[in-house]
Simulated scan of single mutants.
Amino acid sequence: MKKTLLTAAIMSMAFSSTVFAHGVCDTTLHGYMENIKDEMRAMSSDVKAGDSESAVGHVEALISYFEKSRSEAPHKFSHDNLQGAELKAQTAEYQKVVDDTITILKELEGALKAGDSAKVRDLFGAIGEQRNLGHRSFKDC
């Protein structure tokens, strides 16, 4: 009986839509976003620990990943079968979100170098807003 339950659970997980959806979304952009998530966590830890120099290194890596991400198309564009003017408009909006995030990260880099903790805190909030905007608009996985 227990073997049957275990087998059923494994089969259920193997064929669940979330497992399939995640596989479909395993794109270059998804890889960059995973790297961005890791760098953000490391940067946040460094800021909390007072290690601004190390945090600046993470900011530089984040900028690099966002610059690479700019030329990628979110999976949602192909999933929603965007074409023509709609694809062009959504691509421009996506690139604007990425560009605005890069601008905020560059400001954060300056604030970290200057030791301006109040500005760092404000910029962390701005980065969170950008993340929410990007995920609401372009994430479907």
Score class of each variant (00 low, 15 high):
135 H>I: 00
41 R>T: 11
135 H>Q: 11
102 I>D: 03
67 E>V: 09
72 E>G: 00
26 D>G: 01
33 M>V: 09
61 A>S: 07
38 D>T: 12
56 V>E: 15
53 E>T: 15
41 R>Y: 10
113 K>N: 07
86 E>C: 03
69 S>A: 15
79 H>V: 01
127 I>M: 15
121 R>H: 14
78 S>G: 05
129 E>C: 02
35 N>F: 01
70 R>D: 01
16 S>N: 14
29 L>P: 02
139 K>W: 00
133 L>N: 09
51 D>A: 10
67 E>R: 06
38 D>S: 14
30 H>Y: 00
65 Y>D: 11
33 M>A: 05
74 P>S: 09
99 D>M: 03
74 P>I: 00
47 V>A: 07
12 S>P: 07
119 K>G: 10
35 N>I: 00
126 A>D: 12
63 I>Q: 09
131 R>A: 11
139 K>V: 01
92 A>T: 04
135 H>W: 01
136 R>E: 15
111 A>L: 11
115 G>C: 08
122 D>V: 10
52 S>G: 05
136 R>Q: 13
51 D>P: 08
107 E>L: 13
83 Q>T: 15
131 R>Q: 13
34 E>D: 05
107 E>M: 12
25 C>M: 06
47 V>I: 15
32 Y>L: 06
137 S>A: 12
132 N>V: 10
120 V>R: 02
90 Q>L: 13
88 K>M: 09
61 A>K: 05
128 G>N: 13
103 T>E: 12
50 G>N: 10
59 V>P: 05
79 H>S: 03
75 H>W: 06
93 E>M: 12
100 D>G: 13
38 D>K: 13
37 K>S: 11
120 V>D: 08
119 K>H: 11
